[in-house]
């Protein structure tokens, strides 16, 4: 009976998740490119061997992790500050709530175009400002060393509201009398933040990190439109590499392999996170 009732959901999951995954798995053991006339030809583990020796793959892995790590960390910090601000009642809170949510409501492609214009060298408003101060225009989008930070900034701007919203829900689930009891025992508001708010917010923060990390590790549209992976591949991510392999180089077998490599990476990170949470929960018991 239980099986019967969960069958529709299971079927749907199988259709949208298991089937593509299995198909990718199958494809990653085939050559399927222009050379094979776009027909899948089994090639053993050649794709996987190539992946392990592919410097571009490893460079993109580092760049993807660097992007995801920094943006999720910043989103968590800024999101927490925003959530705390929105939790306490003050004049203008409703207005701020609306403004805060706007970036989240905007399509990524639109906002990526916006940022590309803002940081345009030399015509964007930021460089106009820089030049008005008498400084030379800065290569925001053409410096291999620092352009990835602009991508981080755009991502933080867009997705912080999501983190703030999750954390706000968490804040509102904490009963006020805990703070009253704490104040009666001599605790200051700063101590309450550390001793009550943050520990009780931890499960919500975990959820936010899990969601955001999964999204950030698979980031595609933002990078594609803002920088196209450049300059010199310095902002290319794994998802973009997989897309290019398939759509520009027409190497579908290898594209599937890159995608699966990313999947394994994500799986490993999630496992570490979940284990970390269990360890933390155990440590507090």
């Amino acid at each position: 009976m239980t099986l019967l009732l969960t069958l529709p959901a299971l079927l749907l999951l199988a259709l949208v998740f298991a089937v593509p995954l299995l198909r990718y798995g199958w494809l990653s053991f085939h050559a399927d490119s222009v050379i094979t006339g776009l027909q899948p030809v089994p090639n053993g583990g050649a794709n996987w061997l190539r992946l392990i020796e592919d410097e571009r793959f490893w460079q993109d892995t580092v760049q993807t992790l660097r992007f995801a790590g920094l943006s999720v960390a910043l989103e968590l910090l800024v999101g927490l500050a925003l959530a705390l601000l929105l939790h306490h009642s003050w004049r203008g809170r409703t207005a701020l709530r609306t403004i805060t949510l706007l970036p989240w409501a905007l399509p990524t492609a639109v906002m990526a175009l916006g940022w590309r214009w803002i940081f345009n060298d030399p015509y964007g408003p930021i460089n106009a400002l820089v030049q008005a101060l008498g400084l030379p225009a800065l290569p925001f989008l053409s410096s291999p060393a620092s352009t990835w930070l602009v991508v981080v900034l755009a991502d933080v701007w867009k997705t912080t509201p999501f983190v703030a919203l999750l954390l706000l829900a968490g804040l509102q689930s904490i009963p006020t009398d805990l703070y009253e009891a704490f104040a009666l025992e001599g605790g200051t508001p700063a101590q309450a933040l550390r001793r009550i708010t943050l520990p009780l917010l931890l499960p919500y923060a975990f959820l936010a990190v899990l969601f955001r990390l999964a999204q950030a590790l698979g980031v595609f549209d933002l990078v594609q439109i803002l920088t196209g992976g450049g300059p010199a591949g310095s902002t290319e991510t794994l998802a973009l590499y997989s897309y290019l392999s398939a759509m520009r180089f027409l190497d579908f077998g290898y594209s599937a392999t890159v995608m699966l490599g990313m999947f394994v990476l994500l799986l490993g990170l999630t496992a570490v996170l979940l284990l970390g949470r269990r360890w933390l929960a155990g440590g507090r018991a």
Binding site: D177, E180, A181, L184, E185, G186, I196, L200
Partner: peptide, 21 residues
């Protein structure tokens, strides 16, 4: 302020810290 009144209070909801032993 409440913190300086040295009052021992029992709340209707008990207000125990759920994350602490």
């Amino acid at each position: 302020p409440p913190s300086r009144r040295e009052v021992g209070m029992v709340f209707q909801s008990y207000a125990l810290y759920p994350h602490l032993t």
